[in-house]
Design a binder for these strands. Structure first.
Lengths: 151, 151
DNA sequence: CCTCCTTTGACCTTTTCTGACCTTTATTAT
DNA sequence: ATAATAAAGGTCAGAAAAGGTCAAAGGAGG
């Protein structure tokens, strides 16, 4: 088993006792004798939102990385929606996803309207056509993540 | 938790009982065993006007620092928010506006997080720096409109 | 050989904290 | 009154302490 999986396993087992985990990137890297950036690799390949994890971090003195596991329920539905968005999406498809989320009770109608507004043609007017889809997807994902964050 | 957050917490809790607080920079610094200028750092990063605080001070003998929390009515705050957005805004300022809207009860915390996410650097990465502010402002306004629409 | 996943290292950004030096105000001495 | 001194607080640059990004090298499997 490679380094990546070792670190991933370490994190997963730590998450079994506590459902939220806070760690220092540098410390963890030292413990496994690897480059700090390796930790970022582990996080992005093994603890992505699509895989049901929320990762937050802070730089500077006293910085940290916090990892949370998302359990079944509305939050997990949001994560699945997030995974389905992909790297680009048009306004109509986004609206459809929102309708489903609302129907499933994962978001409130108000939240749906808010997100639709953020991704509307009107809001994104001025963005070159070939970039709109990508940008919309990025905004959508960040918003869905924020929703899951709140739960 | 770092020094900055300790001091900030101390001040916030003092502000809970009294809505205006007066203190000596030197005393506070000594109590926390730090450089006096550290207090200025705390004030400028945690108690800025954008975050809803007014800080006044006086030098010289008998000098002091006075901190007040500003609270306006929801309507006034919302108007102010709309006006303050203008044609361009950065992520930090937008976040501060949202904090105030939340504190004034004009939006829910969940809505605040959602909007912050939609305008985050992360969501808008990939947008040329010189267009980011404008786009963020556009998205912000559309979202605020949607909020007003719903509310 | 070719491709995909891993791993590293160089360089970047953000946040905190301190120390040296400056300005303002009050008090005290002449 | 005026001048000197003491007692605040203000500013700013820089060091230190995190974490982030990205391209390139390394390796395993087909």
């Amino acid at each position: 088993m490679g380094l990546t999986d070792l670190v991933a396993q370490f994190i997963r087992s730590a998450l079994e006792s506590d459902q939220s985990l806070e760690l220092r990137r540098g410390e963890l890297a030292e413990r496994f004798g690897c480059a700090p950036s390796q930790i970022n690799y582990v996080l992005s390949t093994r603890f992505s939102p699509e895989q049901g994890y929320i990762v937050e971090s802070r730089r500077g003195g006293g910085g940290y990385i916090r990892i949370r596991r998302v359990e079944a329920g509305p939050r997990l539905i949001l994560m699945h929606a997030l995974a389905s968005v992909g790297s680009s999406i048009d306004a109509a498809s986004a609206a459809a996803v929102l309708t489903n989320l609302d129907a499933a009770g994962a978001i409130t109608p108000a939240e749906g309207r808010l997100m639709a507004a953020a991704m509307s043609e009107r809001a994104l007017a001025g963005v070159p056509a070939e970039r709109k889809g990508t940008l919309r997807a990025e905004i959508f994902k960040q918003m869905l993540l924020a929703c899951a964050d709140a739960g």
